[in-house]
Design a protein around this nucleic acid. Structure first.
Ligand SMILES: [Mn+2]
Ligand SMILES: [Mn+2]
Ligand SMILES: [Mn+2]
Ligand SMILES: [Mn+2]
Lengths: 220, 220
DNA sequence: TTAATATTTTAGACAAACCTAAAAAAAGTT
DNA sequence: AACTTTTTTTAGGTTTGTCTAAAATATTAA
């Protein structure tokens, strides 16, 4: 079956609000999609009629098996296009999301498979998020929040949870990107800020708020 | 200003029916767009209100300066994507049109400029049609219909006017593509069919109908 | 366990883009 | 010039996706 851009955006939003596992609230969906709760209710009825979600009035919504499959397809297209924009067209990682938001809705199976092949079957998008393969499978990521990294332990940045332009700009100023190796040198109890050391550059300080949105893994 | 997919499809259709120079009929637009004349009238009123066309009831429609500019932008996007699909993703030239029909509506100035740069500023799409540059200028093409090529005169195929899958399939079978060098060896008055010679392959015959849709230029 | 508050749904409207059927205008024909 | 046919527009609907305001339900707090 084929879905409208709106339908796809709702499915993806449900997925991003953990709707593949947990129940998602109408209000949260409205906030995520910048629309009104009444509009969400309308769409949920439609998606339920198309058997993509499990929905009972007042009880929230969850993707069913079919809905989850559709969601993974959209996420796959979104992240492949992000990778293309960053890798081939030299977009910076804070510019890719908005354009991918449109490209993800182009419905051509062949296009996506050819693109995937052309890109060399990438496993992660420019934000460190895993790209589902053509069967919807994706690499498990071990995402340790930077706040939980022990002191003086080198680790590699492998993801960011907030992808707003504001946050990405801040990361760029601090020279933090996917793949950057860093250590936490000190944590300050007063405001939970922390000192970060990147090789060959002076130590600097980041806030707890920023640290919570950066994920790392131990060097392998 | 930003335009809907429908609005863009109408503008492009007007352009393709010579609406940058001549007046285009409501019925012809309806046929081109697979819609009803009543729907066309509705949209023409809207486009006139947006000052993209010159429209007077019962008198046909023509693009104005602004409309022409928009049309060239859409054509530019369409042909750049076609080039990308054929050149980078290895689509065959009969598959590119349908996907480009969707990609052409992605509205990001930066995307198109980066894509153009990445592709090396191509001048022609896979069907031999010229690609407008970022100012809407395009290479003049000298398109001589194959029916008018003198006998025994080598010429290069530089365009096809009908881009239906049927025609493109036929061309592929005859090993005719953009860039192919060929000669007309004989014309048969009875049905106006003609003998074609391509180097290193046996002479074969094509119908007048096919020849009318193939354009060539003298070898330079 | 009742009252207050927050969340969600329903009712009724609206804009965009399409449709059919009927009316109006233009073009072609005797 | 009058009649016929073709083209185009108008009138009135439908579907999709949105909205506001009001009603219904669920949650939290006294
Ligand atoms: Mn989207
Ligand atoms: Mn991403
Ligand atoms: Mn289109
Ligand atoms: Mn083309």
């Amino acid at each position: 079956m084929n879905f409208s851009i709106s339908e796809e955006d709702y499915i993806k939003a449900i997925y991003h609000l953990k709707g593949d596992k947990l129940s998602v609230a109408t209000n949260d969906l409205a906030a995520e999609l910048h629309t009104r709760p009444a509009s969400v209710t309308d769409m949920l009825k439609k998606l339920a009629a198309k058997k993509l979600i499990h929905y009972q009035p007042y009880k929230g919504v969850m993707l069913n098996t079919e809905g989850r499959k559709i969601a993974l397809g959209i996420v796959r297209r979104h992240r492949l296009w992000e990778y293309f924009l960053a890798e081939k067209l030299n977009f910076s990682w804070n510019e890719v999301h908005e354009v991918a938001e449109q490209l993800e809705h182009i419905s051509s199976k062949k296009l996506i498979e050819k693109l995937d092949e052309y890109l060399g079957y990438p496993k992660f998008d420019p934000h460190g998020d895993p790209i589902p393969d053509h069967l919807g499978r994706m690499q498990a990521t071990d995402h340790l929040p930077l706040t939980e990294l022990p002191l003086d332990t080198p680790a590699v940045v492998n993801g960011v949870s907030d992808q707003s332009p504001e946050m990405l700009e801040l990361l760029r100023r601090r020279n933090i990107a996917i793949g950057t190796v860093l250590e936490v040198k000190k944590k300050f109890g007063f405001d939970h800020s922390m000192e970060i050391k990147i090789k060959d550059t002076p130590v600097f300080i980041i806030t707890e708020q920023l640290a919570q949105n950066i994920f790392v893994q131990y060097e392998s």
